[in-house]
Design a binder for these strands. Structure first.
Length: 747
DNA sequence: CTACCGGATTTTTTT
DNA sequence: AATCCGGTAG
């Protein structure tokens, strides 16, 4: 059986050792001998694979065959050094875990090995050792949007107005604290400024809310596991005996909690193998500490260090562009990537009129190449933010290009999906108040806000849960209609809870029909009933899951769905053009890559008035995108871009100026014939050739005018335009219908 | 209690 | 642009 990236094969309880029966009965050893596993490796790769004992650090440049090293090493360990179930490989994304498991399985030795993400490992550990961790094993895992709701509620409880503090920023502060293993108390102690102190109060209230409903958020999974391992020698010993060889990919992305887990897990045997590339550290905003990989050699002075610097993926020119870019980083460990591949074509830079033009240009070009015989799956489009995907989806569809998108509308974020899952979550964990509130009147059954508030107040007053109040509403004064509605709902949940131990698919089907969700979905039979299709897709997912995991419980499946990341759910056919964020692109490679929206404020991403993002990290992100490319790299940018409903003038990214000029080939797409090349742009608006003083614009009513004044505000820019017969008028650039006009377009 | 309308508000990145 | 929130009419 394949090493399971998400749940242990249920027939193979991970913590019972040996997993099943006599080890001799365990699936046959590798059909390929050790010699095959080690064949065709370069000297450094071979070192990394065969240094099986003690700490090993592999500094692996982009495209240097890192995945190959890890998979071979895992296979080698399982085949000749130890038993497969003693090998644990940890990745950051489900996608990476799945791919790694598959590749190891392809080598014929996957059986019994654990290949999973940090988060799913933690869920298993916490469920299994719930008593030691002080948890109820049926805990709910809160996703991003549930979590945001709870933060808001916590702010309410603290009587903190959302006018002065945004839930998003407080949420981020709490998350960062947790990733640094700082609990509410510790956070409060070091809070110096008034906003930190406010956040500290919310943190405490938020923790209270989580505890009340027996829920953990993503960060808790890591933090609690680290605390458990730290404080409980017995659990630690048990786990390190089970996992005698630990491999961690993308080590540059580990945060404090993850670092602690890795360290504690391997403390006794020190068989810790990590790979990573400091130049590809792009998760600092989530608490990842690049220092973890930089100081590995200090942590483990006896560590074997292997450098993989030969790139097998890209052309010389792409590599040189990537290298020039990342060399601009000051905080960097010098590294030289080289390749024996061809020089290849120059990197193309295409300046477009607006985002629509940009998307159509890319789609048209890809369509042409597919028509000329290229495979759609050769192509990928990367963007900094998901919001940019829309234009490209549209353009691809119009051009008849098959595409897949990582996180179109995140599947598990859709209302109908969240609704059904909320029922299941309440069935498993009745204390889950977020889910309960979600379903109590979905579909509408006559339980309004007033009634819910009364029930909540009653629950709070008696120190009971909301579910208790629903079940036994004695003492809550309600109008007859409402009372009946609540009773009916209580009865419904009573009936459903009997199915909490059903298999996932059965539970799902029962819930859909008994809850009335199915009926209400069927009712909206207008044309293509997308919600219904989505729910059917969910049924398929459940069926597939229980086929792959015959003994999985409803709880297991719910954990699985909570941990599925946005970029793991891919929409669209196989063999299609891939659309994804730069972050999601890490670890992949494509013959032809388009990185779009290479603009100031977008590629080094900035937000007005917020503390600036880490420019070096943004540069690394661009570096990651560039190094995904095997042969053809195209960068695109626009003159103006529609953002949040309004056109904004766009400027080129300063990163473009850091690329070696002689490796680039510029194209400027102008709608009106002759066009100056996209001008370099600096800080001030006057440098911007489209919206500078003196340039021409066209107004739908007043015709062509000349810009005579320009004011750049924090939130909006205003221009003063002089029209031949209307005098001077002011416009807010973002909201006006002004169009840029070239000098050569008018007489 | 529900449905609807209009105003306000959107943190980028992911587990 | 798209979603969410609050207020109001039915």
């Amino acid at each position: 059986m394949l090493a399971d990236p998400d749940g242990f094969p249920p027939s193979d309880d991970p913590f019972e050792f040996p997993p099943r029966g006599d080890p001799l009965e365990f699936p046959p050893r590798s059909s390929r001998g050790p010699s095959t596993l080690l064949a065709d490796l370069t000297k450094p790769q071979l070192d990394a694979v065969t240094t099986t004992e003690g700490p090993v650090l592999v500094l692996a440049g982009a495209g240097s065959g890192k995945t190959r090293v890890i998979t071979r090493r895992a296979a080698h360990l399982a085949a000749t050094v130890t038993q497969p179930w003693h090998v644990l490989a940890i990745t950051f994304t489900n996608k990476a875990a799945e791919e790694m498991a598959q590749r190891i399985d392809g080598l014929g030795v996957g059986a019994g090995m654990t290949v999973c993400t940090y988060h799913s490992l933690c869920v298993r550990i916490l469920r299994r050792h719930h008593a030691a961790a002080g948890l109820d094993p049926r805990f709910t895992i809160m996703d991003q949007s549930d979590r945001r709701k709870l933060v808001k509620e916590a702010m309410d409880r603290c009587e903190l107005s959302t006018a002065n503090f945004s839930p998003a920023s407080i949420d981020a502060a709490i998350s960062l604290a947790k990733n640094m293993m700082q609990n509410a108390e510790a956070f409060a102690e070091q809070a110096d400024r008034f906003d930190n102190k406010a956040a500290a109060r919310v943190y405490a209230a938020y923790e209270q809310l989580l505890a009340e409903q027996n829920a953990l958020d993503f960060d808790d999974l890591l933090m609690r596991t680290a605390i458990l391992l730290d404080g409980n020698a017995e659990v630690r010993a048990q786990l390190s005996d089970r996992y005698r060889y630990v491999l961690i990919d993308e080590y540059q992305d580990t945060n404090v909690a993850q670092y602690r887990i890795a360290r504690l897990l391997t403390e006794s045997h020190r068989n810790l193998f990590v790979t990573g590339d400091p130049d590809q550290s792009i998760y600092g905003w989530r608490g990842a500490d690049i220092g973890n990989i930089l100081s590995f050699e200090k942590d483990y002075p006896d560590a074997k260090v292997v450098r993989l610097e030969q790139n097998y993926r890209s052309t010389k020119r792409i590599l040189s562009a990537a290298d020039a870019l990342v060399s601009a980083n000051v905080l960097r460990k010098e590294k030289s990537l080289w390749t024996e591949n061809d020089a290849g074509d120059p990197v193309r830079v295409v300046a477009c009129e607006d985002n629509r033009d940009e998307a159509e240009t890319v789609a048209r070009e890809i369509a042409e190449r597919i028509a000329a015989g290229r495979s759609p799956s050769d192509f990928a489009v990367f963007y900094r933010i998901n919001a940019l995907s829309r234009s490209f989806e549209e353009a691809m569809m119009n051009a008849g290009v098959p595409y897949r998108i990582a996180r179109g509308l995140a599947f598990y974020d859709r209302k109908e999906i969240k609704d059904v899952l909320a029922y299941l979550r309440v069935m498993v964990n009745p204390r889950d108040m977020v889910s309960l509130e979600r379903i109590i009147n979905t579909p509408t059954r006559g339980i309004g806000d007033t009634t819910i508030e009364k029930l909540k107040a009653h629950a709070a007053h008696n120190g009971r849960t909301l579910f208790d109040a629903v079940r036994d509403r004695g003492g809550v004064r309600l109008p007859k209609r409402s009372a009946e509605a609540v009773d009916a709902f209580a009865e419904l949940m009573e009936g459903l809870s009997r199915h909490a131990d059903s298999r996932p698919r059965t539970a799902l089907e029962t819930t859909l029909s008994l809850s009335g969700l199915n009926a209400s979905l069927l009712q909206q039979a207008d044309g293509t009933n997308e919600p219904l299709e989505n729910v059917n897709e969910l049924l398929n997912a459940a069926a597939e899951y229980q086929r792959d995991h015959p003994e999985a419980t409803l709880l297991d499946w719910l954990s699985h769905t909570s941990l599925l990341g946005d970029s793991d759910v891919v929409d669209g056919p196989a063999g299609a053009v891939m659309l994804m964020t730069l972050h999601a692109a890490k670890g992949l490679e494509f013959p032809s890559v388009y990185i779009v929206g290479v603009e100031k404020g977008l590629l080094p991403f900035e937000r007005m008035g917020e503390h600036p993002v880490d420019v070096e990290e943004e540069r690394r992100l661009f570096f990651v995108g560039i190094t995904r490319t095997m042969r053809e790299l195209t960068l695109t940018l626009t003159r103006r871009r529609m953002r949040q409903g309004a056109f904004l003038p766009a400027m080129r990214s300063p990163f473009l100026d850091e690329l070696p000029g002689d490796e680039l080939e510029w194209t400027d797409r102008g709608s009106g014939g002759a066009r100056r090349p996209y001008a370099p742009v600096g800080e001030t608006p006057d440098d911007f050739d489209c919206w500078g003083v003196g340039s021409l614009v066209r107004h739908p009513d007043f015709g062509v005018g000349q810009i005579v004044g320009l004011r750049r505000g924090a939130r909006q820019s205003t221009v003063e335009v002089e029209f031949p017969d209307r005098g001077v008028r002011s416009y807010v650039v973002e909201f006006s219908d002004l169009e840029r006009v070239d000098f050569d377009e008018v007489d």
